Amino acid sequence: MGEAVLHDYWRSSAAYRVRIVLNLKGILWRGLPLDMIGGEHKHDDYTALNPQGLVPTLEIDGHVLTQSLAIIDYLDATHKTPAMVSADPARRARTLAQALIVAADIHPVNNMRILNALRSDFGASEEQVRLWVQRWIAEGFAALERMAPEAGLFGGDMPDLADVCLVPQMYNARRFELDLTPYPRLVRIDAAARALDPVARAAPEAVRAG
């Protein structure tokens, strides 16, 4: 099995999720960073791999995979431990619901292209953009806080898909100066997850520095 190649942007929360899972599963990979500020993700050579021109894209086992949750699903099917979702149908559904609060409800309305459209098409100020981001994170976090366990990670002793989605979103929450006081369980889970070496090595600052 050769080295996996991750087409990456250091600040992308979707790519951050995949970096965490690659590290947790001990998969050998290297990153090919894209300058998304400079528009490299729209170049023809990249859109030939990923027609959406988004990150991440993972080249692995002779396949070219896109969309972070689809990539993670593939990694979970081919590298069984640690499992990102349970084999038990009810527990699997619960974990997916928690993860999708971030991946389907918070993140899509707050990603770079949406924020740029708010600025360019609707004349939003930076303060208005910040308030927009805070609004949708806060709405999702309020629900996720109620679902969070009193102790341990969402996945118990090891991160599961909900933890993998939470950590990058917490990074975004801090970046956009959301008050995290109302979410003590999420703050605890995020800190515990980021203390794990595979998660720490996936952090934006670690990737950008290395």
Rank of each mutant, 00 (worst) to 15 (best):
G155K: 10
S68G: 06
G38R: 05
D160T: 13
G31F: 03
L115C: 10
S13I: 03
A162F: 03
V207L: 07
R194W: 01
A77R: 15
A173G: 00
A70P: 04
R30E: 14
E145G: 12
D197A: 10
P182F: 02
A97N: 08
E3L: 07
M36T: 12
Y9V: 06
D121H: 12
D35K: 09
R130V: 08
E150Q: 14
L34G: 06
R188E: 06
E205A: 13
A99T: 08
A191F: 04
G155I: 15
G31C: 09
P82R: 03
L32G: 08
D44M: 06
A83W: 14
D163L: 08
D8I: 03
S125Q: 13
A138R: 12
N110I: 15
D76W: 10
K42N: 09
D76C: 10
W29C: 07
E205W: 05
W29T: 07
I189A: 02
N110R: 06
E59Y: 05
V85M: 10
I60Y: 10
L58P: 11
D121C: 11
G2R: 05
A206F: 03
R130P: 00
R119K: 15
A173C: 01
E150M: 10
L54F: 13
P56S: 14
A143C: 12
R119C: 00
A87F: 13
T66G: 07
Q52F: 15
R113L: 11
Y171L: 00
R19F: 01
D44R: 12
K25F: 00
L178N: 04
V21G: 05
L65F: 02
R113N: 13
G156V: 15
E127T: 14
V199L: 06
P204K: 05
A87S: 15
E59L: 14
D88C: 11
L49V: 08
T47F: 05
E139G: 09
A87E: 15
A148F: 14
H107R: 09
N110D: 04
N172Y: 06
N111E: 12
L34S: 06
G2S: 14
L161V: 07
A192Q: 02
I106H: 07
Q169S: 09
Q98S: 11
T57N: 01
D76R: 14
G26Y: 05
K25V: 07
R113M: 11
T181R: 06
L153A: 03
V164G: 11
A48N: 01
W10A: 05
K25D: 01
M170G: 01
V102A: 13
N23M: 04
A124V: 11
E3F: 01
V5L: 04
R146M: 13
Y74P: 14
I106D: 02
A173S: 02
G123I: 09
V21K: 08
S68P: 03
T78V: 15
T57I: 02
L131F: 11
C165P: 05
R11H: 04
A173L: 07
P56W: 13
F154Y: 07
H7A: 04
V199N: 02
D160P: 12
P198A: 02
R119H: 13
R113W: 12
N172S: 00
P149K: 12
F122A: 14
V207F: 10
R94S: 09
R175L: 03
V109F: 11
Y16A: 06
W29I: 01
A202T: 05
P82E: 09
E177A: 09
E127L: 13
D190R: 02
A191W: 00
G31K: 00
L186D: 01
V187P: 04
A104M: 13
